[in-house]
């Protein structure tokens, strides 16, 4: 009996508030943790950027760019096993939270949510991509992912007889990544805001980095989770999202397609409402913030599962708890401006 109550308690909970605190704590850990001798490893599935002085770990994207910065010969020698090893470590971290790493832990994601809060408190409206742009733009993260894998390889190897790339192209994504420029600021470190005048390539890449940083700040002010939509980490995670332990499951039969879920979605995924056939409803842009489950009033239409255990389900009661209207009518609001029906009846 008690077990059921815990379940009900969770289903009625305000996960967004919980998420806010988790994000705050993880932001602190991943931006200042290093100062407290926390060490988490350098193959993390989030932007725990090593350029941040207080960072307790490293982002896997940096690792992968470093590791692939070698010749085919080394990659296919026993030393190449280390590449697989770090992929394994990345996956070990990743499968626990699946894409919830983005929604709950990533400091860059958290920062965008805070910028959204700032916008909200100023009362500005947000923007959304229309369907066509959404479909077109979502490819960018895969292109970035492909580039950040191919460019390091092309520095040491020649593709199709083309000349090798300059060595100043190493870790190309980090050079343009907004985490490198913006997150150190939280440690009071402005040293990443620079243009590297070593050669043309570095000038271009680092000034691109500054532009992306500026775009990040402006973009996330007008659009929720602006950068995540282009994030190659999100693309990489999605490739493995099927093996994640944490899952978002939809029961299409129970769905009325009311669209509550897609309208509260920060990244603007429409399939969550319109797709009634897929069971696994995690899409590449999803960050598992679970706002969709919170906004769903249909009993069990959306569920968060770990393996086969439901840990958070959409319920009618939970919906009404979170969105107003209590299931039992408590006060009649007689003084309500909307209810001045004085000469009702006789």
């Amino acid at each position: 009996m008690k077990k059921i109550n815990i379940k009900k308690y969770i289903n009625n909970a305000n996960v967004s508030r919980f998420r806010f605190w988790i994000q705050l704590i993880s932001f602190f850990i991943f931006v200042y943790g290093g100062y407290f001798f926390i060490e988490i490893g350098s193959r993390l599935p989030i932007f725990s950027c090593p350029y941040v002085p207080g960072s307790p770990g490293g982002c896997y994207l940096l690792g992968v760019q470093h590791e692939l910065n070698s010749t085919w010969h080394t990659i296919f020698s026993p030393r190449g096993i280390s590449i697989l090893k770090s992929l394994g470590i990345f996956l070990l971290f990743f499968i626990f939270l699946n894409k919830a790493w983005c929604g709950f832990v990533c400091p860059l994601g958290t920062l965008q949510d805070w910028i959204t809060r700032l916008r909200k408190s100023l009362g500005f409206s947000f923007t959304r991509y229309d369907e066509m742009s959404f479909k077109r733009l979502k490819v960018i993260k895969y292109i970035l992912l492909a580039l950040l894998i191919l460019i390091p390889l092309a520095i040491n190897n020649s593709f199709f007889g083309l000349p090798k790339l300059s060595h100043s192209m190493h870790t190309p994504f980090c050079k343009i990544c907004p985490a490198r420029t913006i997150l150190p600021l939280f440690n009071g470190d402005t040293s990443q805001i620079y243009i590297d005048f070593t050669d043309t390539t570095t000038i271009i890449l680092t000034s691109l980095g500054l532009m992306v940083a500026a775009l990040f700040l402006v973009g996330s002010f007008v659009k929720k989770r602006f950068f995540c939509f282009f994030c190659p980490m999100s693309a990489l995670q999605f490739l493995f999202s099927k093996i994640g332990l944490l899952r978002l499951i939809k029961n299409g039969d129970k769905c009325t397609r009311c669209g509550n879920c897609s309208r509260v979605c920060d990244v603007g995924i429409t399939e969550i409402a319109d797709d009634i056939l897929s069971k696994n409803i995690i899409k590449d842009d999803c960050m598992m913030c679970l706002k969709c489950v919170e906004a769903c009033p249909e009993e069990g239409a959306l569920k968060v599962k770990v393996l086969n255990f439901d840990i958070f389900s959409a319920t009618e009661e939970g919906f009404f708890k979170r969105y107003g209207g209590t299931s039992k009518f408590e006060t009649s609001n007689k003084d309500d401006v909307l209810n001045s029906n004085k000469n009702k009846d006789e």
């Binding site: 009618e316 107003g324 299931s327």
Partner: peptide, 10 residues
């Protein structure tokens, strides 16, 4: 207000 009515209806 309407949500309250709907909760009761549900």
């Amino acid at each position: 207000m309407i949500l309250t009515a709907q909760a009761e209806y549900r």
